[in-house]
């Protein structure tokens, strides 16, 4: 069995195992799995409205997945996508509300501000990793909570007068599209999906086709070798975190300028950043893989909302399945051992 085939088979087996265990849980708790999966399918793709909502959900998942995957490729684990996503969301809405400009300036400005905010939020752990060798996992987790509380504070005390949510961004800074909405029976589908797909292409091009991308990957494979070859490990570490933060910030702009058009106070995380980890892992940290994994998770999350009504199954079941997929991808060592056994038997 070739290595390439194994790399593709491993996530698929993890996916199947996740679904199998999810099904077992449903059978044990007395729900009907067939009804549940039918409701899931119907709720994700059943009519234009659901399809529009699914694509809308896929958009931030692609970007969050790219953010996690990009850092992974350079050997860094950015758990802070959630925080970078939140500050990006906040920055985009802030700029959207603060200025009155023509659309061709205002919208790009709001999007860029989200990218800058995400980049800055990721720059701090990148710098600490490069300068002090502080583990980025811990710093990014802490930065998530700082982002959560700071955003809530800004919403309540700076953007509004003690209110729970801001007003809507004006049309000049909005990604919303009446045309796309009418096409999908008034779903919240917006132009962000185009940006997300472009970003997939950018990530692939940057990593695979440029010298800088080669350096970044080299640092990811072996820092000592990269250093020996004359590459600046520290510079590449910071750069990768910044680019990762840009993707995460963009994901925030998708919610701030597209889906919602405002930002509200949050009692806990949205989960987009953490699902980004699942997306990146299942997608094997490649641009194309992230795209497909985001489509899967987006469809699962949106389809799940139909499950309580149509099949009486709690929508948290999908969260369990996603968690199991992450678990099985993480433990893929055992899947690989299994695949190797099979291919050895075939060879004999």
């Amino acid at each position: 069995m070739s290595k390439r085939l194994k790399n593709i088979l491993t996530p698929i087996i993890a996916l199947l195992l996740g679904i199998i265990v999810g099904t077992i849980i449903m059978i044990v708790t007395g729900y009907n799995p067939l009804d549940a999966y039918a409701a899931l399918w119907e709720g994700a793709l059943g009519n234009p409205y659901y399809l529009g909502e699914t694509i809308r959900q896929i958009t931030p998942y692609i970007l969050a997945g790219l953010a996690v995957a990009f850092a992974f490729r350079v050997g860094l684990f950015n758990i802070g996508v959630e925080g970078q996503f939140l500050v990006g969301w906040l920055a985009s809405v802030w700029v959207g509300l603060a200025f009155h400009l023509p659309k061709f300036i205002h919208l790009p400005l709001a999007i860029i501000s989200a990218m800058v905010a995400g980049a800055l939020w990721a720059f701090i752990p990148g710098l600490l990793k490069a300068r002090f060798r502080v583990h980025e996992v811990i710093v990014t987790i802490m930065m998530n909570y700082i982002a959560l509380y700071v955003c809530n504070y800004v919403i309540q005390n700076v953007l509004t007068n003690g209110k729970e949510r801001t007003g809507n961004v004006p049309d000049s800074a909005s990604l919303a599209s009446p045309w796309l909405q009418s096409l999908t029976q008034n779903s919240r589908l917006h132009w962000g999906i185009v940006i997300a797909i472009i970003c997939c292409f950018i990530m692939w091009f940057l990593l695979e086709k440029t010298t800088r991308g080669f350096e970044l990957r080299a640092v990811g494979f072996n820092q000592d070798a990269a250093h020996y070859a004359g590459m600046s490990v520290n510079k590449n570490i910071i750069l990768s975190m910044v680019i990762s933060g840009i993707f995460a910030g963009l994901a925030g702009a998708m919610e701030g300028l597209g889906t919602f058009g405002y930002i509200a106070m949050k009692s806990s995380f949205t989960g987009v950043g953490f699902n980004g980890i699942a997306v990146a892992l299942l997608g094997g940290n490649t641009a194309l893989g992230v795209f497909f994994a985001a489509c899967l998770f987006g469809a699962l999350e949106v389809g799940a909302l139909n499950m309580p009504l149509a099949a009486g199954v709690p929508n948290e079941l999908v969260d369990i399945i996603i968690a199991l997929i992450v678990f099985f991808v993480a433990a893929s060592y055992i899947i690989r051992v299994f695949l190797e056994r099979i291919s050895k038997k075939e060879a004999k």
Binding site: I25, T29, F77, I79, V137, F274, I277, A278, L281, P314, E316, L317, V318, D319, I320, I322, A323, L324, V326, F327, V329, A330, A331, S332, Y333, I334
Partner: peptide, 23 residues
């Protein structure tokens, strides 16, 4: 299974929230 400790930890967190709310 030699999983990355951090990834496995993330899976534990996701699984715990999903499973408890489901139950």
């Amino acid at each position: 299974f030699r999983a990355d400790h951090t990834v496995s930890g993330v899976a534990i967190n996701l699984l715990a929230t999903g499973l408890t709310l489901f139950l």
